[in-house]
């Protein structure tokens, strides 16, 4: 059987979801953002909620996320996505409202909005791309930058005496009564991608069931900022990032949020 015989519609097993637009994404080659975009789009398509999903885009490399997934979006000021998502969800409780945020956006300038939205138990989903760096602005140190990791603003490596410690913000969020589901995932290989996709779906289901805030962290790479090839970045992430940010569920409560209070 030749390749030509195999390439027929009835033999299709994997392809681009229609929810991803034809726009070419601006991300650097091999960037984790693209994989996470794809997964969110696939889940929205599979749940058939295209008309009910509203994304809130961040400031950071994902600032143009609204060009790539064909749903309704709002663009938030830097770090304010959870506050904006709160308003949207409260005004339109039947919608699936989510934020998409980097570590600079969520864990630096937006720390207060993140913590308070989670503490209020807003029925939103927070997708958190932790690549341990400010990708967009040229690779500066982020709160999540690992100890010893070199960035443009800590060229000799993060010094915890001077710069403090890598912030495990998802662990903090898991402590809050308002969160129902906090999980840490990754998207560098097929098995992890399958797991990450399940987490995305569960988070969306929680939000419509009114269980509280769901946070899905994706331990990610920024190969440009890290100054490595995409493949080497994945290896480095597995070796170093996973040690500080271990994968798995940090919290998963099936309790209805209002009853928990």
């Amino acid at each position: 059987m030749t390749t030509k015989d195999i390439i027929k519609p009835e033999n299709l097993v994997y392809g681009k979801t229609k929810l991803m637009t034809e726009n070419q994404m601006h991300y650097c080659p091999g960037c984790s953002h693209g994989v996470v975009h794809k997964l969110i789009a696939e889940v929205i398509e599979e749940m058939n909620i295209q008309d009910k999903a509203i994304g809130v885009a961040p400031v950071g490399c994902a600032v143009f996320a609204y060009n790539y997934i064909d749903i309704d979006w709002q663009e938030a000021a830097h770090g304010r996505a959870p506050a904006l998502a709160t308003a949207i969800k409260r005004l339109q409780p039947d919608k699936y409202v989510f934020t998409y945020q980097g570590d600079g956006d969520l864990a630096a300038i937006g720390t207060a909005e993140t913590i308070h939205a989670c503490n209020r138990g807003e029925n939103i989903v927070i997708f958190f791309i932790n690549n341990a760096i400010y990708g967009m602005t040229g690779g500066q140190m982020a709160p999540t930058t690992l100890e010893g990791m070199k960035t443009a603003t800590c060229p000799f490596g993060r010094n915890t005496e001077l710069n403090g410690y890598p912030l495990k913000i998802s662990n903090l969020l898991a402590e809050l009564d308002g969160t129902c589901y906090v999980t840490r995932q990754s998207v560098q290989k097929m098995a992890s991608i399958v797991r990450a996709k399940k987490a995305i779906r569960k988070a969306f289901e929680n939000s419509i069931a009114g269980k509280g805030t769901s946070v899905v962290e994706f331990v990610s790479t920024c190969n440009s900022g890290w100054k490595m090839s995409p493949h080497d970045s994945n290896k480095w992430m597995e070796e170093h990032m996973f040690a500080k940010y271990p994968l798995g569920d940090l919290k998963d409560t099936e309790k209805v949020h209002t009853e928990a209070k």
């Binding site: 059987m1 015989d5 027929k8 299709l12 097993v13 392809g15 681009k16 991803m20 994989v35 794809k38």
Partner: peptide, 13 residues
């Protein structure tokens, strides 16, 4: 699955 830019379509028999 791993392609960040959704470039690949797969067929199987």
């Amino acid at each position: 699955y791993v392609c960040p830019d959704a470039c690949i379509t797969v067929y199987k028999v």
